[in-house]
Design a protein around this nucleic acid. Sequence first.
RNA 1: GCCCGGUUAGCUCAGUCUGGUCAGAGCAGGGGACUCUUAAUCCCUUUGUCACAGGUUCGAAUCCUGUACCGGGUACCA
Length: 507
Amino acid sequence: MDFSPTVTLDGARRLLVSFEGETSPPADGGDAPEGPEVQVAGRVMQFRMQGKSCFAHIEDDGERMQVWFKLDRIGEQPYAVVRLLDYGDIVGVRGRVMRTRTGEPTVVADAITLLVKALQAPPEKYHGLQDQETRYRKRHLDLLSSVEQRRHFAARTAVVRSLRRTLEARGFLEVETPILQPIPGGATARPFTTHWNALRTDVFLRIAIELHLKRLLVGGYRQVFEIGRVFRNEGLSPRHNPEFTMLEAYEAYSDYNGMRALTEALVVEAASALGPQPGAEQQGGAFPCEDPLRRSVAGRELVLTPPFRTVRMVDLVRDICGFDPVAEWDDLAGHARRLGVEVQTSDGPGATLFDIYEQRVESQLWDPTFVLDYPAEVSPLARHRSDDSRFVERFELIIAGRELANAFSELNDPIDQRRRFEEQARLRAAGDDEAFVVDEDFLEAIEMGMPPAGGLGLGVDRLVMVLTDSPSIRDVLLFPTMRPRHRDDETHSVAAHLSPSRRAEEA
RNA sequence: GCCCGGUUAGCUCAGUCUGGUCAGAGCAGGGGACUCUUAAUCCCUUUGUCACAGGUUCGAAUCCUGUACCGGGUACCA
């Protein structure tokens, strides 16, 4: 059963083309000349059995090639194998490249090797796999039946590669920091909890990367970044998955303005790396478009050409809601009521302003917009503005109504930082289970002196969603989080399988 | 969590409003014909817990209730 392909399917096609370039076309009525011998492998996606001859299409790595089996050429025994082929089988074929009368590049077979037999029927060959649940739960079938899906997920990889390249080109060092943490910090979110048997203690899956990267700045690294999974114990939605991929980058002696330039470069270069958007929906005659920075998202044009719009949050609120939040700082709760904005009873003016912005302004932002200067109240890790301590040097990048990135001039004053942690602790005591927990290790680290720095967090999945025009985060995750599908007895059997090892470890 | 919609053969789907030859089609599977096909074609043919559990009824895929799962929306979510 030894078989190894000598060329890819695309390679075989190129061999045929170059062979034809060196050969004069056949005389009238003659069969097309046969090119060099190749060995190719792939999965049988279609075949058309015609008695003593059979055409099949095999597919491998996104490429497709026709194979032609003829009884009188391949022989009785091998042809018996052809007769037994099923959709989904993976075969190796030795043969010669040629072109059929219809002009299709084809490997005419001299030998066939059945590499693996498919025992499960593949999805319907014409419509493909339509059921959303099956496409998410059994992604291998989704990918198998759709070249487009395989290309789509390769685009995600291209984005991540571009992010990495952009940062490395600017001198950033990629690092890896713990996912299991004794105290989850760096964001306001509920964590997933797990148990460390040996130490008989609960640990948490990280909700952000932030605090460890800042400790690396204390340690003397000037530019660091990490691309990794973070986990938040929240609901599913088209824009939220409990585990998602975050890029965080920190640069000493920079600030949020430096991070703004970096963020813009990351987005623009990622879009350029993807190239022009394929098959964008026609909208106002603008698409398809050769400019990779002009894209279609949800049927609407999105222009990513720099520089991105930059505007302060208070100016946005003033322009869209019709009042000046700074001048009317003490009446923000009243404005929120008039606008029908829902606020928490514990909200101060800063949090109320943020509620108004989030509920009335943010979703209206379409083209890339840096929203500057958030209320200090909702930004416990960012540095105050020197001209107005109610606000911090922070921005979020909004594209197509979605938050893509969040950055600030990092708070590096340990005394101020401790005060803000204690304020968060008060909120937590008052029932806010998303407020920060005081992280003494982090405080001790920055008491050593953390250089002034800019820091950035970017939602990689959301960037990929925008750049690939994907309406749901599940469409950019190969295996999105799904509600576990179980029967009662299975639940118990899983527990039964897990518990002996846990007992052994704890003994 | 809440609201709306969906769940019928391995796959893609009709059938549900109006209960009663409705257990159906195409593809896949099985048998046969076919040596330039392209969702090949032609003849024959197998396949079902109509999501699950109750209820109404002489009779339920169809009506009612509950449950599960999926999708869309919404909420939580820097």
